[in-house]
C-alpha cells in the first residue's frame, strides 16, 4: 500500500457535482484527483476530490465560484 499522507478531501452530494467539480478544477489548473471516499469521512457520493492541504481555503472559494456545494471538506491522514 502507498504511504499515507495528509490530504484535503472534498466530498459531494452527487456524482454529477463531483464530475462538475473535477472538470472545473482541470480547466483552472487546480491540483488534485478523484479518489474513493475514505472511511473517515461520511459522504453521499462515493467520489471525493483529493488535493494538498494547503489548498483548503482556496478550494472553499473556488467551490463557491463554481456554484457547486460540497458535502464535506476535511484534511485527513489517509
Amino acid at each position: 500500500m502507498r504511504q499515507k499522507e495528509w490530504k484535503l478531501v472534498i466530498t459531494f452530494r452527487t456524482t454529477a457535482d463531483a464530475i462538475a467539480f473535477e472538470k472545473a478544477c482541470k480547466a483552472n489548473d487546480k491540483p488534485g484527483r478523484m479518489i474513493p471516499v475514505p472511511r473517515e469521512i461520511s459522504a453521499g457520493c462515493g467520489l471525493a476530490w483529493a488535493s494538498v492541504p494547503e489548498e483548503k481555503d482556496g478550494m472553499a472559494v473556488f467551490l463557491e465560484e463554481q456554484n457547486i456545494k460540497c458535502e464535506e471538506m476535511k484534511v485527513l491522514f489517509c
Partner: peptide, 21 residues
Amino acid sequence: NSGRGAHNDSLDAARLIYDTR
C-alpha cells in the same frame, strides 16, 4: 458504470455522461 467507483473506467463514464448533460 458511472458513479459506481473511482477507477478510471467508472470516472470516464461519469465524465462522458456529465458532458452529455
